[in-house]
């Protein structure tokens, strides 16, 4: 048997996706497994927009490790855990509204530049996407 993919990543359903290291409620380091800049940078952005958060920063300590560390320090009026939960909800809100916008946009047929190309994969012509 010839295997065309030499490296394997870990399953997305690993048991410990997030590890929390914290000895005070207002500070915590979250260690994410199998996450990278995709989530790290977006989370860092929404956390810094939260007025209750004093500091947030993320790093990927080694490119061969599949770990991403995120450090949060709040101003004391909320816990680091609450801050990250809010941050995740914020990105979810943003994605939700992008999702809705695509739905609205794709109903407009003028975006299809080439009429003959507007065929669904089942062979039926359509001017709609979904």
């Amino acid at each position: 048997m010839a295997d065309t993919a030499p490296t394997k990543i870990e399953s997305p359903n690993v048991i410990n996706k997030v590890e929390v290291i914290s000895d005070r409620p207002d500070c915590a380091t979250f260690i994410f497994v199998d996450e990278d800049h995709t989530l790290g940078n977006a989370l860092h952005y929404v956390l810094m927009k939260n007025p209750k958060v004093d500091f947030s920063g993320y790093s990927i300590p080694h490119p061969s490790d599949n770990k991403m560390n995120l450090r949060i320090q709040t101003k004391g009026n909320t816990t680091a855990q609450d801050a990250i939960m809010n941050g995740l909800s914020d990105i979810k809100d943003i994605s939700q509204s992008v999702d809705e916008r695509i739905g609205e946009e794709s109903n407009q047929s003028h975006i299809y530049s080439d009429a003959q190309l507007c065929h669904r994969h089942d062979g039926h012509p359509t001017n709609r996407l979904f």
């Binding site: 989530l39 990250i84 939960m85 995740l88 979810k92």
Partner: peptide, 21 residues
Amino acid sequence: LSAIQIIKRKLTDIQTQLQDT
């Protein structure tokens, strides 16, 4: 579209994971 669904799912998964931790 799939990319956005994946981002949303990823965030929900992490939230439940964090809650459990």
